[in-house]
Design a protein around this nucleic acid. Structure first.
Lengths: 105, 105
DNA sequence: GGCTATGGTAAGTTTACACTTACCGTAAGT
DNA sequence: ACTTACGGTAAGTGTAAACTTACCATAGCC
């Protein structure tokens, strides 16, 4: 990865974001996730694989089912990266932009 | 967009993240950005268009050149969204995960 | 043992999209 | 006016990747 952040690449896909958001309230099984998504269950499995490789979710088995949940560590890393990213940028730009009235096309 | 967040879709592309990161230190012209990227200048223009539509950058003209810079508002919105996203999730999961020793495959 | 639910994986298709070259408009310099 | 820099857009191409169906493995239930 160019910038150590597969997380953003993983969240680039809308379907994957839908899955991600459905995981926010709490752990869910694969079939449960697929049930109210417009794609097939295998598609959901593949997306979960990507999210897992990106470190955004973790999974555990519960009998015949497999439960996925958000990975706090992965989320923390993403947040830390983004924070470090614009904590500096935001403040600097905010003032710069405000005092320089530019013509935005 | 499924979840009001084109920003993440825009940042999903590695090249676009490269451009985004080169914009972090400060405003840059298009040709300047393209100079040290492995893609052509038109490609950079197209990426900037996507970033602009996503509200992540703003541009202004400076003579024959066009200067792009990060859009603090867009960045703030993205940050706010992500924050609201896992401010709740993180705390809840952190404890839940720690006290439930799961078998991660 | 058979039967059903659950979910991962393989294989193939099809669409999206990141890229290229070519062209055109505009701005500044001579 | 001519020329050179700058950059957006159009058109076309090629590849990645998001999907599908089909198949297989495992778990629990009767």
């Amino acid at each position: 990865m160019t910038n150590q952040l597969g997380g953003l690449t993983a969240l680039g896909d809308p379907t994957r974001r839908s899955i991600f958001e459905r995981l926010r309230p709490g752990p869910r099984a694969v079939g449960e996730l697929a049930r109210d998504l417009p794609v097939s269950r295998p598609a959901v499995s593949q997306h979960l694989r990507v999210l897992k490789d990106a470190g955004l979710v973790i999974d555990r088995r519960a009998g015949a089912r497999r439960i996925y949940q958000l990975d706090p560590d992965g989320l923390g890393a993403l947040r830390a990266y983004l924070d470090q990213y614009w904590t500096r940028a935001l403040a600097a730009y905010k003032t710069a932009v405000e005092q320089r009235p530019e013509e935005v096309s």
